[in-house]
């Protein structure tokens, strides 16, 4: 049986993607994103700054004809800014600002993209509670790989709660200038 091409196998493949995370580095920490949220990874390119935006909004870029916002994840997490290096990447993700809203594509600047890691559900623990001092709402959990910990991000929350992502319909269309 040509199992590899069967519909069943496709479903099975997709299911297995549920445990895969794209891991990357910001400062000294390792982070992970569910791979299904990731649209693509591009090298750093010229970013057009947009005036009067929160500090962590680097600006916009042209992604094959689509203008998408780019967020500096370091600044979003309050990590000291650093100059872009050759290894700096933009991870393009699709998020939903709210249930039922249209998905929004945006880019996130990260220090280094590491690899796609398989993290089984039983290797993921909920983020420890820090009381009210540390907001953990945007953390899906903490994955354990060998000796390392990977902070798994609920990217919809990371970007929505940052007030960056306005509902798509609130975005300024070119109202008759």
């Amino acid at each position: 049986m040509k199992a590899s091409t069967s519909a069943q196998a496709r479903v099975a493949r997709s299911r297995s993607a549920a445990n895969k995370y794209l891991t990357f580095v910001l400062g000294s920490e390792h982070y992970g994103l569910p791979i299904l949220k990731v649209q693509e990874i591009i090298g750093i390119l010229d970013i057009t700054p947009v005036p009067r935006m929160p500090a962590h909004v680097r600006g916009v870029v042209n992604l094959r004809g689509k203008v998408i916002p780019v967020i500096d994840l370091r600044l979003r997490f309050g990590i000291e800014a650093q100059a872009d290096t050759k290894r700096t990447c933009i991870v393009v993700v699709q998020i939903r600002p709210a249930a039922g809203a249209d998905p929004v594509t945006l880019g996130m600047v990260v220090d280094v993209v590491s690899e796609v890691q398989d993290i089984p559900a039983d290797q993921i623990e909920p983020a420890p509670a820090f009381g009210t001092t540390v907001d953990t709402a945007y953390i899906l959990g903490v994955g354990k790989i060998a000796k390392r910990v990977v902070i798994l991000l609920d990217i919809d929350r990371v970007l929505t709660s940052s007030e960056v992502v306005a509902a798509a319909d609130a975005a300024p269309t070119a109202s008759k200038p």
């Binding site: 010229d46 057009t48 947009v50 005036p51 009067r52 935006m53 909004v57 916009v60 870029v61 042209n62 004809g65 203008v67 998408i68 916002p69 600002p97 929004v104 594509t105 945006l106 007030e163 960056v164 992502v165 306005a166 798509a168 609130a170 975005a171 300024p172 269309t173 070119a174 109202s175 200038p177």
Partner: peptide
């Protein structure tokens, strides 16, 4: 339109330039 950013009174959108920049 600049989808995904808060509305701005200063910016009406972006235009793609011949060199691929916005």
């Amino acid at each position: 339109p600049l989808v995904g950013l808060p509305p701005s009174a200063l910016v009406a959108g972006a235009a793609l330039m011949g060199d691929g920049s916005a």
